[in-house]
Amino acid sequence: MPSKRKKRLSMTETVQSYAMISVGVIGLFIFVVLPLLWVLRYCLFSYKGFGEIRFVGFDNFVRVFQRSPKFWLSVRTTFVFAVGKLCVELPLALVLACMLAKKLKGRTFFRSLFFMPSMLSVAVIGVIFSYMFSSYNGVVNEIIKLINGVGGIKFFSKASTALMVLMIASVWQNFGFNMLFFMTGLQSIPEDLYEAARIDGATERQQFFKITIPMLGPVIQMVVLNALLGSLKVTDLVLVLTDGNPLGQTETIMTYVYKQFFTGSSGAPDYGYASALVVVSAVILGIVTVIYLTSTKKGSEIY
């Protein structure tokens, strides 16, 4: 008798749970899973949006690997962008976090201020920085003029300077966000460790490299992965700030692939080819993640 009662109860539980979870599941299926399936289906076909949908096997992938120099240029640009800006952003975030993790007057103020840019829209940041760095009379040009007399740099007409502006804008937006994570990590390090080290006569420098950094290992690992993937996926900033110009030299993976669906490389877009690009890009991001996680395994285990 009790077992029967239990079974009936769990039956109602199951029914009600399914009813509640179904909203999320159906939505997830339509708006997240279906687009992925769409891509997986079309990557083996050739389809220009009209006419016949032709099965071409792996031809699209062959084209991606053998006849898509612009895509691989965008891959290269993306990695240059990501590595370049992270080399500035993460050390800056860590240094600020170390300063602000201690008792310091105005600590909350600085923390809130540095985190503020992360609250803004990436696209709007693009607009702001396009004003700051505009050619001839932009604010940055005027400031340069004040310092050395000559301004007039056309930041957006050379690939190197355009990429630099992208990096600066991205660092400006994200350093506070990463700083916040480092701060949380720092605050979770027990104070006794430092106390013990001080009693043993360790200098501040030794404390930093022998206690702070190793104890922060897992947090650093997570922050770097987050920041790396975020940078490799940069989209809105590029679309608004440079739109891939000059000559597609600042196109990133996301913007290049995204545009392939709309304009294509030679006139009409080929959805099959674009889908293959999506698959390859996703695989690239996946490989980066796996390589990163396996190669940093040791660092995160020290904790």
């Binding site: 339509i30 708006f31 279906l34 687009p35 992925l36 769409w38 891509v39 996926k233 989209t235 993976i253 996301m254 913007t255 692939v257 995204y258 669906f261 709309f262 959805y271 674009a274 889908s275 690009l277 999506v278 890009s281 996703a282």
Partner: peptide, 12 residues
């Protein structure tokens, strides 16, 4: 995947 599946999403 963000931006790269934006087009399929739009179709759907």
């Amino acid at each position: 995947a963000g931006a790269i599946t934006m087009f399929p999403l739009m179709q759907i």
